[in-house]
Design a protein around this nucleic acid. Structure first.
Lengths: 146, 146
DNA sequence: TTGATTAGTTGATTTTGTCAACTAATTTGT
DNA sequence: ACAAATTAGTTGACAAAATCAACTAATCAA
Protein backbone atom coordinates (compact mmCIF):
# COMPACT_ATOMS: atom_id res chain seq x y z
CA UNK A 1 0.00 0.00 0.00
CA UNK A 2 1.63 3.22 -1.18
CA UNK A 3 1.44 6.85 -0.20
CA UNK A 4 -0.65 7.41 -3.28
CA UNK A 5 -3.25 4.92 -2.03
CA UNK A 6 -3.45 6.81 1.23
CA UNK A 7 -3.67 10.19 -0.47
CA UNK A 8 -6.49 9.01 -2.65
CA UNK A 9 -8.45 7.63 0.25
CA UNK A 10 -8.02 10.85 2.15
CA UNK A 11 -9.10 12.75 -0.90
CA UNK A 12 -12.21 10.61 -1.19
CA UNK A 13 -12.92 11.18 2.49
CA UNK A 14 -12.77 14.92 2.05
CA UNK A 15 -15.04 14.65 -0.93
CA UNK A 16 -17.53 12.48 0.85
CA UNK A 17 -17.40 14.60 4.00
CA UNK A 18 -18.76 17.38 1.83
CA UNK A 19 -21.45 15.07 0.51
CA UNK A 20 -22.53 14.02 3.99
CA UNK A 21 -22.31 17.60 5.19
CA UNK A 22 -24.74 18.54 2.46
CA UNK A 23 -27.18 15.91 3.60
CA UNK A 24 -26.76 16.61 7.28
CA UNK A 25 -26.99 20.31 6.65
CA UNK A 26 -30.49 19.72 5.48
CA UNK A 27 -31.41 17.86 8.64
CA UNK A 28 -29.88 20.62 10.71
CA UNK A 29 -32.40 23.01 9.24
CA UNK A 30 -35.05 20.95 10.97
CA UNK A 31 -35.85 21.37 14.63
CA UNK A 32 -33.37 18.69 15.61
CA UNK A 33 -29.64 18.49 16.02
CA UNK A 34 -27.59 15.68 14.54
CA UNK A 35 -27.23 13.79 17.85
CA UNK A 36 -30.98 14.11 18.37
CA UNK A 37 -31.71 12.66 14.98
CA UNK A 38 -29.30 9.81 15.57
CA UNK A 39 -31.00 9.04 18.86
CA UNK A 40 -34.43 9.11 17.23
CA UNK A 41 -33.08 6.77 14.58
CA UNK A 42 -31.98 4.26 17.22
CA UNK A 43 -35.31 4.47 18.99
CA UNK A 44 -37.25 4.07 15.78
CA UNK A 45 -35.49 0.99 14.50
CA UNK A 46 -34.78 -0.83 17.75
CA UNK A 47 -37.04 -2.22 20.40
CA UNK A 48 -36.54 -2.28 24.15
CA UNK A 49 -33.78 0.28 24.03
CA UNK A 50 -32.20 1.59 27.22
CA UNK A 51 -30.12 4.74 27.62
CA UNK A 52 -26.94 2.78 28.12
CA UNK A 53 -27.52 0.92 24.86
CA UNK A 54 -27.70 4.23 23.04
CA UNK A 55 -24.58 5.38 24.84
CA UNK A 56 -22.60 2.39 23.61
CA UNK A 57 -23.86 2.37 20.04
CA UNK A 58 -23.69 6.13 19.46
CA UNK A 59 -20.71 6.78 21.74
CA UNK A 60 -22.43 9.74 23.31
CA UNK A 61 -21.91 11.17 26.79
CA UNK A 62 -24.48 9.87 29.24
CA UNK A 63 -25.17 13.26 30.77
CA UNK A 64 -25.71 14.73 27.35
CA UNK A 65 -28.00 11.89 26.38
CA UNK A 66 -29.93 12.16 29.61
CA UNK A 67 -30.75 15.78 28.88
CA UNK A 68 -31.73 15.13 25.29
CA UNK A 69 -34.02 12.32 26.41
CA UNK A 70 -35.50 14.66 29.00
CA UNK A 71 -36.36 17.13 26.23
CA UNK A 72 -37.94 14.37 24.17
CA UNK A 73 -39.95 13.31 27.17
CA UNK A 74 -41.12 16.85 27.79
CA UNK A 75 -42.30 17.02 24.18
CA UNK A 76 -44.05 13.67 24.69
CA UNK A 77 -42.00 12.09 21.93
CA UNK A 78 -40.76 9.23 24.07
CA UNK A 79 -42.01 7.22 27.03
CA UNK A 80 -39.87 5.54 29.65
CA UNK A 81 -40.84 2.52 31.67
CA UNK A 82 -38.65 1.19 34.45
CA UNK A 83 -37.31 -2.19 33.54
CA UNK A 84 -38.69 -4.98 35.73
CA UNK A 85 -35.45 -6.89 35.39
CA UNK A 86 -33.18 -4.01 36.32
CA UNK A 87 -34.83 -1.17 38.14
CA UNK A 88 -31.92 1.12 37.50
CA UNK A 89 -32.59 1.28 33.79
CA UNK A 90 -35.62 2.28 31.77
CA UNK A 91 -36.94 0.96 28.49
CA UNK A 92 -37.37 3.87 26.14
CA UNK A 93 -39.86 3.90 23.29
CA UNK A 94 -41.10 6.45 20.83
CA UNK A 95 -44.67 7.60 21.26
CA UNK A 96 -46.88 7.91 18.21
CA UNK A 97 -45.92 11.57 18.15
CA UNK A 98 -42.24 10.64 18.29
CA UNK A 99 -42.65 8.17 15.48
CA UNK A 100 -44.38 10.75 13.33
CA UNK A 101 -41.65 13.28 14.00
CA UNK A 102 -39.01 10.81 12.94
CA UNK A 103 -40.95 9.80 9.87
CA UNK A 104 -41.23 13.37 8.71
CA UNK A 105 -37.50 13.84 9.21
CA UNK A 106 -36.97 10.67 7.29
CA UNK A 107 -39.13 11.93 4.47
CA UNK A 108 -37.23 15.20 4.31
CA UNK A 109 -33.99 13.28 4.22
CA UNK A 110 -35.28 11.08 1.42
CA UNK A 111 -36.28 14.10 -0.60
CA UNK A 112 -32.85 15.56 -0.14
CA UNK A 113 -31.27 12.39 -1.50
CA UNK A 114 -33.72 12.38 -4.38
CA UNK A 115 -32.71 15.91 -5.26
CA UNK A 116 -29.06 14.93 -5.34
CA UNK A 117 -29.78 11.80 -7.34
CA UNK A 118 -32.10 13.59 -9.71
CA UNK A 119 -29.52 14.64 -12.33
CA UNK A 120 -27.99 11.15 -12.30
CA UNK A 121 -29.23 8.65 -14.85
CA UNK A 122 -30.87 5.40 -13.78
CA UNK A 123 -27.85 3.57 -15.08
CA UNK A 124 -25.34 5.64 -13.13
CA UNK A 125 -27.54 5.38 -10.06
CA UNK A 126 -27.28 1.61 -10.20
CA UNK A 127 -23.53 1.86 -10.61
CA UNK A 128 -23.34 4.21 -7.64
CA UNK A 129 -25.06 1.67 -5.44
CA UNK A 130 -22.89 -1.08 -6.75
CA UNK A 131 -19.67 0.77 -5.91
CA UNK A 132 -20.96 1.73 -2.47
CA UNK A 133 -21.82 -1.87 -1.79
CA UNK A 134 -18.36 -3.01 -2.83
CA UNK A 135 -16.67 -0.48 -0.57
CA UNK A 136 -18.73 -1.63 2.39
CA UNK A 137 -18.00 -5.22 1.56
CA UNK A 138 -14.26 -4.70 1.51
CA UNK A 139 -14.27 -2.77 4.77
CA UNK A 140 -16.61 -5.19 6.47
CA UNK A 141 -14.57 -8.19 5.45
CA UNK A 142 -11.51 -6.63 7.04
CA UNK A 143 -13.62 -5.91 10.09
CA UNK A 144 -14.51 -9.55 10.69
CA UNK A 145 -11.02 -11.02 10.77
CA UNK A 146 -9.40 -8.67 13.22
CA UNK B 1 -34.99 5.70 -8.87
CA UNK B 2 -36.74 3.68 -6.21
CA UNK B 3 -37.10 3.91 -2.45
CA UNK B 4 -34.65 1.06 -2.20
CA UNK B 5 -32.02 3.10 -4.02
CA UNK B 6 -32.51 5.88 -1.52
CA UNK B 7 -32.42 3.58 1.47
CA UNK B 8 -29.19 2.04 0.32
CA UNK B 9 -27.54 5.38 -0.22
CA UNK B 10 -28.62 6.53 3.22
CA UNK B 11 -27.31 3.31 4.66
CA UNK B 12 -23.98 3.84 2.97
CA UNK B 13 -23.89 7.38 4.29
CA UNK B 14 -24.41 6.17 7.84
CA UNK B 15 -21.72 3.60 7.33
CA UNK B 16 -19.27 6.10 5.92
CA UNK B 17 -20.10 8.69 8.55
CA UNK B 18 -18.76 6.17 11.04
CA UNK B 19 -15.66 5.74 8.92
CA UNK B 20 -15.01 9.46 8.72
CA UNK B 21 -15.84 9.86 12.40
CA UNK B 22 -13.14 7.34 13.13
CA UNK B 23 -10.62 9.31 11.17
CA UNK B 24 -11.68 12.68 12.48
CA UNK B 25 -11.79 11.32 16.00
CA UNK B 26 -8.15 10.65 15.65
CA UNK B 27 -7.43 14.19 14.58
CA UNK B 28 -9.46 15.49 17.47
CA UNK B 29 -7.06 13.83 19.86
CA UNK B 30 -4.47 16.22 18.56
CA UNK B 31 -4.20 19.78 19.79
CA UNK B 32 -6.43 21.03 16.99
CA UNK B 33 -10.15 21.09 16.37
CA UNK B 34 -11.67 20.00 13.08
CA UNK B 35 -12.22 23.56 11.80
CA UNK B 36 -8.65 24.39 12.74
CA UNK B 37 -7.31 21.45 10.80
CA UNK B 38 -9.41 22.33 7.80
CA UNK B 39 -8.08 25.88 7.89
CA UNK B 40 -4.51 24.64 8.16
CA UNK B 41 -5.20 22.39 5.20
CA UNK B 42 -6.31 25.33 3.08
CA UNK B 43 -3.31 27.37 4.09
CA UNK B 44 -0.92 24.52 3.38
CA UNK B 45 -2.13 23.72 -0.10
CA UNK B 46 -3.02 27.15 -1.37
CA UNK B 47 -0.98 30.24 -1.90
CA UNK B 48 -1.93 33.85 -1.34
CA UNK B 49 -4.96 32.96 0.72
CA UNK B 50 -7.09 35.64 2.34
CA UNK B 51 -9.56 35.17 5.17
CA UNK B 52 -12.52 35.72 2.88
CA UNK B 53 -11.29 32.98 0.57
CA UNK B 54 -11.29 30.57 3.47
CA UNK B 55 -14.75 31.76 4.46
CA UNK B 56 -16.16 30.94 1.04
CA UNK B 57 -14.45 27.62 0.57
CA UNK B 58 -15.00 26.28 4.09
CA UNK B 59 -18.32 28.05 4.71
CA UNK B 60 -17.19 29.18 8.11
CA UNK B 61 -18.34 32.21 10.07
CA UNK B 62 -15.99 35.14 9.62
CA UNK B 63 -15.92 36.02 13.30
CA UNK B 64 -15.12 32.44 14.18
CA UNK B 65 -12.37 32.32 11.57
CA UNK B 66 -10.93 35.61 12.71
CA UNK B 67 -10.48 34.26 16.22
CA UNK B 68 -8.95 31.00 15.07
CA UNK B 69 -6.50 32.89 12.90
CA UNK B 70 -5.67 35.10 15.85
CA UNK B 71 -4.78 32.01 17.87
CA UNK B 72 -2.60 30.72 15.05
CA UNK B 73 -0.88 34.06 14.84
CA UNK B 74 -0.26 34.09 18.58
CA UNK B 75 1.37 30.68 18.24
CA UNK B 76 3.42 32.02 15.32
CA UNK B 77 1.98 29.43 12.99
CA UNK B 78 0.84 31.97 10.42
CA UNK B 79 1.92 35.37 9.20
CA UNK B 80 -0.33 38.03 7.74
CA UNK B 81 0.73 40.69 5.30
CA UNK B 82 -1.63 43.43 4.19
CA UNK B 83 -2.44 43.05 0.53
CA UNK B 84 -1.03 45.85 -1.61
CA UNK B 85 -3.95 45.57 -3.99
CA UNK B 86 -6.65 45.67 -1.34
CA UNK B 87 -5.59 47.07 1.98
CA UNK B 88 -8.67 45.69 3.73
CA UNK B 89 -7.52 42.13 3.30
CA UNK B 90 -4.39 40.28 4.33
CA UNK B 91 -2.51 37.49 2.64
CA UNK B 92 -2.13 34.66 5.10
CA UNK B 93 0.68 32.17 4.97
CA UNK B 94 1.93 29.39 7.18
CA UNK B 95 5.24 29.97 8.89
CA UNK B 96 7.77 27.15 8.95
CA UNK B 97 6.39 26.25 12.36
CA UNK B 98 2.85 26.19 10.96
CA UNK B 99 3.94 23.99 8.10
CA UNK B 100 5.61 21.58 10.46
CA UNK B 101 2.54 21.41 12.66
CA UNK B 102 0.38 20.59 9.67
CA UNK B 103 2.81 18.01 8.41
CA UNK B 104 2.81 16.20 11.71
CA UNK B 105 -0.99 16.19 11.72
CA UNK B 106 -0.86 14.91 8.19
CA UNK B 107 1.49 12.16 9.19
CA UNK B 108 -0.74 11.10 12.07
CA UNK B 109 -3.69 11.07 9.72
CA UNK B 110 -1.78 8.93 7.24
CA UNK B 111 -0.88 6.47 9.94
CA UNK B 112 -4.50 6.23 10.95
CA UNK B 113 -5.47 5.37 7.37
CA UNK B 114 -2.66 2.87 7.20
CA UNK B 115 -3.98 1.18 10.31
CA UNK B 116 -7.43 0.89 8.79
CA UNK B 117 -6.04 -0.35 5.50
CA UNK B 118 -3.65 -2.73 7.14
CA UNK B 119 -5.94 -5.80 7.30
CA UNK B 120 -7.01 -5.23 3.68
CA UNK B 121 -5.10 -7.04 0.96
CA UNK B 122 -3.28 -5.15 -1.76
CA UNK B 123 -5.82 -6.39 -4.24
CA UNK B 124 -8.81 -5.21 -2.22
CA UNK B 125 -7.08 -1.93 -1.60
CA UNK B 126 -6.85 -1.33 -5.31
CA UNK B 127 -10.49 -2.22 -5.68
CA UNK B 128 -11.39 0.17 -2.89
CA UNK B 129 -9.71 3.04 -4.69
CA UNK B 130 -11.33 2.07 -7.93
CA UNK B 131 -14.83 2.13 -6.43
CA UNK B 132 -14.17 5.42 -4.69
CA UNK B 133 -13.00 6.90 -7.93
CA UNK B 134 -16.11 5.73 -9.73
CA UNK B 135 -18.39 7.23 -7.09
CA UNK B 136 -16.68 10.57 -7.37
CA UNK B 137 -16.85 10.41 -11.13
CA UNK B 138 -20.58 9.83 -11.15
CA UNK B 139 -21.28 12.59 -8.67
CA UNK B 140 -18.93 15.02 -10.38
CA UNK B 141 -20.46 14.38 -13.78
CA UNK B 142 -23.88 15.25 -12.39
CA UNK B 143 -22.35 18.32 -10.84
CA UNK B 144 -21.12 19.75 -14.14
CA UNK B 145 -24.37 19.69 -16.07
CA UNK B 146 -26.58 21.42 -13.55
C1' DT C 1 -23.44 -8.52 53.69
C1' DT C 2 -20.41 -5.38 52.23
C1' DG C 3 -17.55 -3.54 48.56
C1' DA C 4 -17.42 -2.75 43.79
C1' DT C 5 -19.94 -1.80 39.59
C1' DT C 6 -23.59 0.03 36.70
C1' DA C 7 -27.72 3.07 35.11
C1' DG C 8 -28.97 7.35 34.98
C1' DT C 9 -29.30 12.36 36.76
C1' DT C 10 -27.62 16.82 37.81
C1' DG C 11 -24.50 20.95 38.27
C1' DA C 12 -20.61 23.28 36.67
C1' DT C 13 -17.83 24.26 33.01
C1' DT C 14 -15.65 24.34 28.41
C1' DT C 15 -15.82 24.25 23.67
C1' DT C 16 -17.86 25.50 19.56
C1' DG C 17 -20.37 28.29 16.72
C1' DT C 18 -23.59 32.30 15.62
C1' DC C 19 -25.18 37.07 15.27
C1' DA C 20 -24.89 41.77 15.04
C1' DA C 21 -22.44 46.04 15.43
C1' DC C 22 -18.48 48.29 14.14
C1' DT C 23 -14.00 50.30 11.54
C1' DA C 24 -11.50 50.91 7.57
C1' DA C 25 -10.83 50.30 2.74
C1' DT C 26 -12.84 49.89 -1.75
C1' DT C 27 -16.16 49.94 -5.44
C1' DT C 28 -20.15 51.86 -7.94
C1' DG C 29 -23.19 55.11 -9.97
C1' DT C 30 -23.93 59.64 -11.20
C1' DA D 1 -14.90 63.57 -8.16
C1' DC D 2 -17.51 62.03 -4.53
C1' DA D 3 -21.50 60.31 -1.83
C1' DA D 4 -23.70 55.81 -1.12
C1' DA D 5 -23.31 51.13 -1.01
C1' DT D 6 -20.35 47.12 -0.47
C1' DT D 7 -16.63 44.30 1.31
C1' DA D 8 -12.71 42.56 4.60
C1' DG D 9 -11.94 41.71 8.91
C1' DT D 10 -12.45 42.49 14.14
C1' DT D 11 -14.85 42.46 18.37
C1' DG D 12 -18.48 41.72 22.03
C1' DA D 13 -22.32 39.36 23.53
C1' DC D 14 -24.57 35.08 23.29
C1' DA D 15 -26.44 30.54 22.37
C1' DA D 16 -25.81 25.83 21.40
C1' DA D 17 -23.30 21.66 21.88
C1' DA D 18 -20.50 18.75 24.49
C1' DT D 19 -17.66 17.24 28.47
C1' DC D 20 -16.53 16.22 33.33
C1' DA D 21 -17.17 15.03 37.80
C1' DA D 22 -20.03 14.22 41.71
C1' DC D 23 -23.96 12.04 43.12
C1' DT D 24 -28.19 8.52 44.03
C1' DA D 25 -30.19 4.25 43.57
C1' DA D 26 -30.06 -0.42 42.13
C1' DT D 27 -27.53 -4.59 41.22
C1' DC D 28 -23.78 -7.81 41.18
C1' DA D 29 -19.94 -10.54 43.02
C1' DA D 30 -17.08 -12.36 46.66
Amino acid sequence: MTQQHIDEIRSFNRFYTGMIGLLNGYILNSNYTLPEVRILYELYYQENVTASMIITTLKIDKGYLSRILFQFEKKKMIAKIRSKQDKRSAIISLTIKGQKEFESLNLASNNQIKKILDPISKDDCDKLLYHMGQIRKIFSASETNK
